[in-house]
Design a protein around this nucleic acid. Structure first.
Lengths: 235, 235
DNA sequence: GCAAAAGTGTTGTCCTTACACCCATGC
DNA sequence: GCATGGGTGTAAGGACAACACTTTTGC
């Protein structure tokens, strides 16, 4: 057994090693607009350019943990649900030499999370305003945005962006902003009504200058019960 | 500029490095059964256990290239379309110490690719027969199998598994094997007929002991023309 | 009473499902 | 002629798209 362990250790010791980082693409929603949380790059070389929230991973940390730590370090945010999207590995993607990065994305409600650390000009930016970034980060952002558009059609992510109680209009605004399209209001409402996991609070919007809309809750338990598996061939 | 480059280099030099590998999950189809290409583990510790096709990446190689190289080295196969699925990073996943692995998957026609290298008892195994594997490879295989089930419903991967000319029955067999379900034959045929990218050769099966079925081609250009983007909210 | 958005119902079309019979071939 | 799977049509139900009018509220 010790013998075997040694073999395995020798094998691993023979592998070349590479610097590995994580980058977080944090999408948020505010003012009916999809935003993304970015900093200014640390590197003189990319002076003034925007960058994702990233850092190297620590020596005994898995990638999920690293992504959460990076987010905490860079923003002060905790308890954010991150999903792994893809690993980027072009040898020349970092000017300092070879760095492989695994990218995580999340969607959250800007108002639910305060930014406690503002180093490197941490700020929310409109996604549509971003055209150039440091490293290959624009390419990564584009990949994550496509991931998000697909993901939000198949999973109830949108509710992360909203207050606990929300109007159907607010929900539709999220979809329209992320999918960059207009949806028919009546059909949208029917669709979500038929899904059966919006729970009617009997509360209403306030402070609006028009007829207040009903507020709903997302019933997570009901969603878990109803969610389906096989969807059918469609391409 | 030189100054900046130095900064970047110093930064990267300060990052801890980890051994990075790729593993390939190669699915194939033969005898109406979904199979996966596996070897016996190199390590004494996992003596007799099955393992994915993996290896460390080289120092200036991106992951896609590494995956293709590993496949070539392990099997002799070239020109296989691999897709990145996920990166696995639990610190204890390898007994020899920390190793991060990025997993690629593919689907191919067993009869189109000859295995020219058979080291480590390289063989096709029925997916349903695999219960334990070396490392965390069973978990990886399970992840890739779920990925495949979803992927084949949204992309025309199935055609990779078939000869250039195939019968509708053969196509249905692929779907039934991968999705592990029975499909209605008439509805299946109508579905694919309506998609409009199966091109009718006027040839027929031969060497069958019953009425021969028509053979079709997959019209890739037509698929590219027709494929859609926005699918609708559905979860 | 006016502006602004909430709320709602119907119809046609298309897609999906369920189901049963005849046909061509090899033996 | 029989066994085997190929090939097809139809009817019902459900989902989706398109569309317009009434209601409630704040001002």
């Amino acid at each position: 057994m010790k013998e075997n362990n040694k073999d395995a250790k020798q094998l691993v010791a023979s592998y070349p090693t590479v610097p590995l980082t994580v980058d977080c693409v944090i999408f948020g929603f505010d003012d009916n607009t999809l935003k993304v949380l970015l900093i200014k790059s640390d590197l003189d070389q990319f002076h003034g350019k925007l960058s994702l929230l990233g850092d190297n991973i620590l020596s005994n940390e898995d990638l999920d943990t690293a992504a959460n730590r990076v987010l905490l370090m860079r923003t002060g945010m905790k308890d954010v649900y991150l999903e792994q999207v893809q690993t980027f590995s072009k040898p020349d993607r970092h000017p300092g030499g070879r760095v492989v990065t695994t990218v995580y994305a999340s969607l959250l409600n800007i108002k639910h999370h305060s930014l406690d650390i503002l180093d490197n000009e941490l700020k929310w930016h409109k996604v549509t305003d971003i055209h150039t970034m440091a490293f290959d980060h624009k390419e990564i952002l584009d990949t994550c945005y496509l991931w998000l558009q697909k993901r939000i059609q198949e999973h109830p992510l949108a509710f992360n962006l909203l207050p606990e109680k929300f109007s159907l209009r607010a929900l539709q605004n999220v979809y329209e902003a992320i999918l960059d399209t207009k949806l028919d209001r009546r059909n949208f409402r029917k669709k979500f009504a038929s899904m059966g996991f919006l729970k009617d609070t009997n509360e209403f919007e306030s402070q609006v200058t028009h007829r207040p809309g009903k507020l709903f809750l997302f019933d997570f338990a009901e969603y878990e019960k109803r969610k389906k598996n096989f969807t059918g061939i469609d391409f």
